[in-house]
């Protein structure tokens, strides 16, 4: 009964939402892995959204401490942003190099990605260290708590990404472009690009919106 009901509009459904066509069976491993990681990334973004929400709620609770406009340095943030954008580009290049099995370009692109990530982390670390040294650590006010947590959470993700990146390079070195290595590489690229998207939110909401008057 169901079959006749669904077969009726077989061609009126190009997006397969009703899947009038027969389901073809299990998807290939590459799709399964990437899709699972995609779902993980969405959950990670939901986690970030909580820190964004906390920041939005607490941004005015300075408790007599500094406001955002008094402590943010746009120049640093601009450099950080450019680093991440370029690293996203080089990460994409590394992905292409892996797909065409070109080791040299792969190592080169990954190394550049790594260096750009490390520069980003260094700048962020210095910003945090300076703030703490001036007495504006996360314990100073709820605003600083939310600021340090949101930006720091992104920084932790970038650090984990760098660790993962180095592991990926070691894996390609030891195992070559094996199918499972390529799948992990694809997940890594998704991760790195997703961190960039979150950074767009961070610099827009925290530094630019919060840095204005």
């Amino acid at each position: 009964m169901t079959m006749t009901a669904t077969l009726g509009h077989a061609h009126a459904d190009p997006h397969h939402i009703g899947r009038a066509t027969e389901h073809p069976g299990p998807a290939p491993k590459r799709i399964v892995t990437a899709y699972g990681f995609w779902v993980f990334l969405l959950s990670d973004i939901v986690m970030f959204s909580c820190f964004f929400a906390a920041y939005a709620v607490l941004v005015d609770q300075t408790a007599g401490g500094p406001k955002g406009s008094e402590i943010f340095e746009q120049r640093n943030v601009a450099i950080e942003t450019v680093c991440l954008l370029l690293s996203s580009f080089t990460c994409g290049m590394a992905g292409i190099a892996a797909d065409v099995r070109n080791r040299l370009w792969f190592y080169l692109a990954m190394a550049v990605t790594c260096v750009l990530g490390l520069i980003f982390l260094a700048i962020e670390f210095k910003e945090f260290a300076d703030l703490v040294a001036r007495g504006y650590g996360p314990s100073r006010s709820a605003f600083l708590t939310a600021f340090f947590s949101l930006v720091g959470c992104h920084g932790l993700h970038v650090s984990a990404g760098v660790l993962w990146l180095l592991t990926m390079m070691a894996q390609v070195f030891a195992k070559g472009f094996r199918a499972d290595v390529l799948r992990r590489m694809m997940c890594f690229a998704l991760f790195w690009h997703a961190l960039d998207i979150i950074w767009v939110g961070v610099f827009s909401v925290v530094y630019l919106l919060g840095g204005g008057a």
Binding site: S139, F148, S149
Partner: peptide
Amino acid sequence: PILTATLAMLLLDRYLGFHFFTNEAG
């Protein structure tokens, strides 16, 4: 992830003196 984030905030309050949910400092 919402639970993870929320408990992380509580733990930051408890371990590192953050002020997400305290009565002091906003």
